[in-house]
């Protein structure tokens, strides 16, 4: 976390652009449809910003109870974290935004020790089953070794700071952490 702050800390400032708050707080259906153009004017910035924060991806929502959201196909229930032109499962085009459970179980993991330059290693990448919806995430707040991570481990959503940009906006990422600290023992 600290290293990530360091990365952005010294970067050159650019003209202020609309940033985070509208994206974080809008929970509209079909958020993928042109949110960029709708939000890229400073006129869109409300006066009631919660904070100068932006989420790492737009399927993470903050507030009192941070959680992930998905676009769910109204016809077949298939869920997608990105925007889709049509449902990959049934081809229909109506979606609604749904909340994803924050508690989950590790269905698969790997401990990445060799990655691209700039990616801190080791880290734990995992597939987490959140009440029937599969989520890709890092496991955080746990030691990245096979003695501390296990298949079937119970985890919950957690957020962390990626640091601030040149406008002072803080990016917030997410991962999953062990539900029980005692899990770390074995």
């Amino acid at each position: 976390m600290m290293a990530e702050k360091g990365l952005v800390g010294g970067l050159r400032a650019r003209p202020i652009r609309a940033t985070s708050s509208t994206w974080i707080t809008t929970g509209n259906v079909g958020y993928g449809q042109g949110h960029g153009s709708a939000n890229e004017t400073s006129d869109e910035r409300g006066g009631d910003q919660l904070s100068d924060q932006i989420t790492l991806v737009d399927y993470l929502e903050l507030g009192d109870d941070p959680h992930l959201v998905a676009n769910e196909c109204r016809a077949c229930g298939a869920r997608f974290f990105d925007r889709r032109n049509a449902c990959a499962s049934c081809g229909k085009t109506e979606f609604k935004r749904v909340r994803i459970a924050g508690d989950g179980e590790v269905r698969a993991f790997t401990i990445v020790s060799f990655a691209a330059p700039g990616v801190p290693v080791p880290f734990v990448a995992a597939l987490v089953d959140c009440d029937g919806t599969s989520v890709r995430a890092n496991l955080i707040n746990v030691e990245a070794d096979p003695d501390h991570v296990s298949l079937g481990m119970k985890v919950r959503l957690a957020t962390y700071s990626l640091g601030e940009d040149s406008n002072g906006t803080e990016a917030i990422g997410f991962g999953f952490e062990p539900q029980e600290a005692h899990d770390n023992g074995k």
Binding site: H35, T55, D58, D82, V112, F123, L127, N138, S166
Partner: peptide, 20 residues
């Protein structure tokens, strides 16, 4: 140097190593 959304996930930064 500014967090700006890109792509279909609206990511403000590269996600490899951050989201799996």
């Amino acid at each position: 140097d500014t967090w700006t959304r890109h792509g279909r996930y609206g990511a403000v930064a590269p996600v490899d190593g951050r989201i799996g």
